[in-house]
Every structure is written in C-alpha cells, then in structure tokens.
Amino acid sequence: MLQPTYTELLACPSCKSPLEAQGQRYVCQNEACQGMYPIQGGIPVLISEDNEIFSQQDFAREQDIYFRTYKSRLMQVLQKVQPDVSTNLSAARNYRFLARELASRKGLRILVIGGSIDGYGIGELKQNLPADALLVEADVSYGPNTKMIFDSHQIPFRDETFDLVVAQAVLEHVLDPFVCVAEMHRVLKTGGMVYAETPFMQQVHGGRYDFHRFTHLGHRRLFRHFVQVESGIVSGAGSALAWALKYVVTSFARNKKMDKVLSYSAPFLFFWVKYLDLLIGRTRGSLDSACGYFFMGRKEPGYVLSDKELLASYKGLRGNVN
C-alpha cells in the first residue's frame, strides 16, 4: 500500500476527483465517475477505462509493454556489453543543478515520468535528495523503479502537487505531447520546475509507440507555458550520425530475427562516431544538427512565450541570420 501522504495526492485520471483506497484498489469519490483502479503487486494501475491505447488488463501481470527485459543471464550480459550510439552532454550537469536548486525546499515532491528505469545522469539527482523527499517513478511499463502505472496524458495527481517533473526520453513516445506537457504544468506547484530530454535526429526505436521528433525551437514551443531556465543540446551531430549508420545496417533486415542480429551488431561498428560530439562541442552550427535537446523551465503564473519571441530566440546558423 502507498504511504498515506502519497495517497492523499492522487486524483482520478478521468475526472481528477479524489481517490480512496479500498482494499487492493482505488475508487474515485465522484459518484458520476466511480472509476476503479487496481493495485497489482503493490503498484497502482491508474489507467482510465476511456484510454484508447492502454487498458488495466495490459498490466494485470508483469509483461513487456515497451522495454524488452531478459531473464536469461547470458542475454543480460550481452545487453550490458553492447555499446550505446549516443553521448549525453548535459544530463548529469543538469541534474546536479536541479538537486542544488531544490535542496532547500521542505517536503520536496518529484515526479519522474518514464521512470521505470534510470535515465542517463539521474543518479546525480536521486543521490542528493533530502531524506524527506517524495520520489514518484511512474511509467506505462514495469521495471525496477516502477512505483505507479499511468498514461501521461492523464496524470493521476491533484493540481499543484510537485516541485519537479522529469520526462527524459518520453515525449517522442506519446500520442499528444502538448497534452502531456499541459498535464505536467497542471501538477507542478507555482515555481516548480520541469526537465525534459527529447530527440530530434533519431530513427524509430520505440516501435508502435514512437511518434514525434522536435527541433530546438519546436521543443521550446512545446514548453511555451514555462519560463526557460536553460535549454540546449543533449546529444550532438556525432550521435545523430552514429544513429543513422546503425539504421543503415538494420535497413537490410528482411525479418525480425535478422533485425535482432543487425541491431545488436551495428553499435559495435559505429559507437565510436558519437565521440565527435566531444570534439564539436556546443557550437551554433551543432544546434541545427543535434541528435536531441533538453529543456529546463519554471512554472510562473500566466506566462506564455509568444511565437514572435520564439522566432527571435533562434540561435542556429540556417537561413537569414547573423
């Protein structure tokens, strides 16, 4: 069962009314709704009946929805030794900044969306949290960190609940990222912070759950209701090239078995290309060719970035610029 203080923060995914724990389920207290949400192995499954993508039955037992997990020791070793084709130039530094920024807040509450496994660098935040901090790691997949199952289009928490919301490598996998970001804004306290990393130049890696990519300005507009603290490159042009080379190889696959072999082998051939990111750095020229971007922002009442301000903020070298 969840901590009492945790339960008091929950809201019905459908109507946002309070939830009440009744045995191994949560029940909406709105008589017109009366949504019911099971608790599976201590993990609340807060998926509404009107959700068209996921159902509560999908999570009736632990199974792979997005991430592929292996119980075989050999497969775990093979997965561990496979090199990554991306660098991450920013996450560790950004998480250290967030840890310092939030350190003085009493009763700190953090929501990590897509948190079933640790994102790159997030240990810099998690290892420096106050002892009384509440960390909610949620996903639409079971994993070692999963504390709750929900769809980020319908975040099941009350308004103004969290001091920080994190969405690292998440927003490319949701149907409507603008709805999800609006939900993040809703559940953040005034003055609360958001941190997101999202790809620009990456091929499909989430199968059927892979929908969107964003330029630097496109990413900024997604978070236009937040005051920007900082934004920039997560992975640069070297990582983008390594991804492209990997997928040139996997393009030869004619069936799933062949794709598995090529997908596993290709990173060993091209992982070194990502280190061009370290040589290039965060130049203006790299801003339009990056593999992915981050945004860090703060919720302030009434703030909206205008499209005129958005266009004026362009820092790349394409088009008619100085």
Rank of each mutant, 00 (worst) to 15 (best):
V249L: 12
K126F: 10
D151N: 14
G191Y: 12
L98A: 05
L278R: 15
G207Q: 09
P199R: 03
G42F: 09
I155N: 01
K126A: 07
I39P: 05
T250F: 00
R96A: 15
P156N: 11
G218K: 10
R298W: 05
L188V: 04
E31T: 11
K189N: 13
C33H: 03
T161R: 01
F150S: 04
Q29H: 03
S289R: 09
V27C: 12
V166H: 00
V77H: 11
G319V: 05
L245N: 00
C12H: 03
E309D: 09
Y264K: 13
P130Q: 14
Q34A: 10
L222N: 05
G192I: 06
V27L: 10
F157H: 01
L278K: 12
M201Y: 08
F270V: 07
T198V: 13
M258Y: 02
A99T: 00
A21V: 13
G206P: 02
P301L: 10
P144Y: 09
L102G: 04
R158A: 13
I110K: 01
P18H: 04
M75R: 11
E137L: 08
N88E: 07
L102M: 12
K308A: 09
S116E: 06
P301E: 15
I233S: 03
L129C: 08
N255Q: 02
K106H: 09
Y303N: 08
L278N: 15
R73T: 14
A60E: 15
S116F: 03
S90E: 07
G114V: 02
H205E: 08
E197N: 10
A92G: 06
G41E: 11
A11E: 00
A60Q: 14
P267N: 04
T146W: 02
S48Y: 01
A131S: 14
N94Y: 01
M75F: 07
L222Y: 05
D163P: 04
L311S: 10
K246S: 04
L262Y: 04
I280C: 06
S286L: 01
S231Q: 12
P4I: 06
K260Y: 02
Y120N: 13
T5N: 11
D163E: 09
V81S: 05
Q34F: 12
S72R: 13
N255T: 01
V166S: 08
Y26W: 11
Q24M: 15
A92E: 13
H153E: 09
A240H: 02
L135S: 07
Q29M: 13
S231C: 13
D139I: 06
Y142A: 06
D159G: 05
L102D: 03
V166E: 03
